[in-house]
């Protein structure tokens, strides 16, 4: 196995995630796409950890950290979506444009 094949796969997942983040209107689906991107990052971490033969297993440890942070992010993200939905009766993020001029 070469390192590059994992990296290319990871790049594909990451790009698909970006596409999802940009194309989806529904906030829950945007969060799903973000999870895709995080999964791609995890693959990179573990693959590089194997490649560099890190004696402290840093790649895997950081993959675990990413999983943990992703769990936290999903929790907070869904809570915010819930709150927005309660206030606006919609979870479409393109309607959340109060930041505009």
């Amino acid at each position: 196995m070469t390192l590059a094949q994992f990296l290319v796969l990871s790049a594909a997942l990451f790009s698909i995630g970006i596409y999802g983040v940009l194309i989806r209107r529904n906030a829950v689906l945007v969060l799903l796409s973000v999870e895709l991107m995080l999964a791609a990052v995890n693959i990179n971490f573990v693959a590089f950890g194997r490649y560099f033969a890190d004696s402290t297993a840093g790649g895997q440890v950081f993959a675990l950290f990413v999983v943990t942070v992703a769990a936290a992010e999903v929790g907070i993200g869904l809570a915010i979506v819930l709150l927005i939905f309660r206030n606006r009766a919609s979870a479409n993020i393109d309607e959340l444009d109060v930041l505009k001029w």
Binding site: D94, L99, K100
Partner: peptide, 17 residues
Amino acid sequence: LRYIQTGKVQQYAAALF
């Protein structure tokens, strides 16, 4: 230039990437 500040998060994300 303020018209490019659409408030649409995804446009910002697109610009970022």
